[in-house]
Design a protein around this nucleic acid. Structure first.
Lengths: 316, 316
DNA sequence: CTTTATCTATCTCGAAACGAGATGGCAGGC
DNA sequence: GCCTGCCATCTCGTTTCGAGATAGATAAAG
């Protein structure tokens, strides 16, 4: 329906008006502003009709400004400067993002990732305060769904990870106490039943991932300890009381120091993806966006520096 | 063609954004601003995409503002206040016009009009400085055509006066020295040849107006003096050296003081219009417009107060 | 006096923008 | 499971915009 409302100055009209005054003619201003002369004529006319006063004196040599026009010129410059400052301020906010970003991260991935990530954010995004919440993946999934974090590092075994970014791919392996069998580089899934296991509890992502594959292959496991504490599980293995099935990120440090050994599981290889999820509400936040872009870089650096036994996904 | 240009904030978008933030939800703002909720959603989205940052956090209870949004809110309020002040300042300029207005006025009309007009402008339009330029009508016509004045009081004998305003109608009369014949109230055009005349020079409007009518009626006049100075002509008549043919406005004062007498010319009556012309370039000037509206009032007051022997034109 | 050049105002038309209304998706409350 | 409230998206009719053409006015040049 026809919009019958009171006159409101439009930014474009002000820009055209300033352009015309500065050029001294509509025709010159048209060339400068890259707009048709007729469009300038019409818009300035609309300003004059809106204000109810003449802003320009027109003659064959061009235009000059009236007293009212002079007032408007001054005011228009102030307004456009304010808009320019506004755009600069908000754009700078994008260029140098600041504020708090919260990220949930599983205990396993946190063991290789949390330190380097905090360091990277501190050095490359100094105005961002990264709050990292470590936890077992079950609760993390729930909390992320509840919107508790801006970002979350999660695990997925399916090929499809929706809109999440794949950070890395890991392979589950048998974690062996030092000096104990097996001494080969790899072990078949069907042979795992020979080793007593300390594993996370039933609803744990890791537990379910492995259990699904074992069941699919008609195998069984000898679960002796169910503990929802990664460090406790690792201690049990280090003390020779049991074995475990984990991904390399969980025991990267202990393995590199000879406190445990890892033996590759084959037939089949059990893999999973480490993914980065973003809360849809925060997708357009410049701070969240900046951290989101930084994490893959940190992961790549860790993997390529042999600080994390995982593979980087192919980029498409 | 597609307009591919960089992002420029639009006033409407700022108004919508402020409205949404203040309402706390798009839906409530839609009711308040009388705009569809979807339009608000789209416009705020465009602001976010333009700035490259998220301005609002949306959830099921409505919206809250981000840090960037808070900055924009503050800035937008400043911008809209500037625009509001601009509109108020320029609108006030219309309501209380100010500045200089120039008016050309013939010597004849100036004699009855200039004083009262200057007084009226001073009292009713105190912020306007009226510059009055008096002259013979020939040069005045030229100067008005050249754009020297904003306004001009001119004479016309034709019925059609184009876009000019008719201020008054006057009848030419014989100006008689005191104590000399004729002593009747009127004289026929055919009998004017008996009186030696002091009149303006050939290219003068008055001279041409009367000469045309005299020629049309096959009469002749006894022109003894040709002087392009109204006061000189009047002095010649007052001293009894000659008669003249003028309009009442020219000798209103002298006639009222008995220094000259006026005798109506009939068969035919010779009339002319006193008109007000406006320079088209200045038509939209509030100051010129205000003076333009004031002059007819001053004229009407003079005529109705018997300070000017003329008739007010019928209003249609 | 005629022609040329320059400038503004107006008109037409196709493209873009705008907003209303409808609809779908999501989440919380009952 | 249904209802309510809110936001995002889509469709369509209307409005606005600007390009290009053209007319009118005026001063300068020939």
């Amino acid at each position: 329906m026809p919009r019958v409302d009171f006159f409101i100055v439009d930014i474009r009209q002000l820009r055209y008006f300033i352009g015309v005054v500065e050029a001294g003619s509509f025709t010159k201003a048209a060339a400068t502003l890259n707009v048709a002369q007729s469009a300038l004529s019409l818009h300035v006319r609309q300003l004059e009709e809106g204000f109810g006063t003449q802003l320009l004196v027109r003659d064959r040599t061009g235009v000059s400004v009236t007293a009212s026009g002079d007032k408007l010129l001054e005011r228009a410059r102030v307004i456009l400067r304010e808009i320019q400052l506004t755009e600069a301020e908000l754009t700078n906010s994008v260029a140098a993002p600041s504020g708090e970003v919260t990220i949930g991260i599983p205990s396993g991935a946190a063991r290789v990732l949390s330190g380097p990530l905090l360091e990277s954010v501190r050095s490359e995004l100094p105005r961002i305060s990264l709050k990292m919440i470590e936890g077992m993946t079950g609760p993390l999934e729930e909390w992320m769904s509840a919107g508790r974090f801006n970002l979350a590092v999660l695990y997925r075994t399916a090929e499809s990870v929706g809109q999440m970014t794949v950070l890395a791919r890991e392979e589950f392996c048998l974690v062996v106490p030092p000096g104990q069998a097996p001494f080969e580089d790899s072990i078949r899934l069907a042979d795992l039943h020979a080793f007593p296991l300390a594993v996370p509890m039933r609803n744990n992502n890791v537990r379910r991932s492995v259990a699904d594959v074992v069941a699919q292959h008609g195998c069984v496991l000898d679960v002796r300890f169910e503990v929802d504490s990664l460090s406790t599980i690792i201690n049990i293995v280090m003390e020779g009381k049991a074995y475990s099935i984990l991904t390399p990120s969980a025991i990267q440090k202990e393995a590199s120091q000879g406190q445990v050994r890892t033996v590759k599981i084959i037939d089949p290889v059990i893999t999973r993806s480490v993914v980065l999820a973003v809360n849809p509400k925060d997708e357009r936040s410049p701070a969240v966006s900046a951290v989101r872009k930084l994490i893959p870089k940190v992961v790549r650096t860790l993997i390529e520096g042999k600080h994390w036994s995982a593979t980087v996904p192919d980029r498409v």
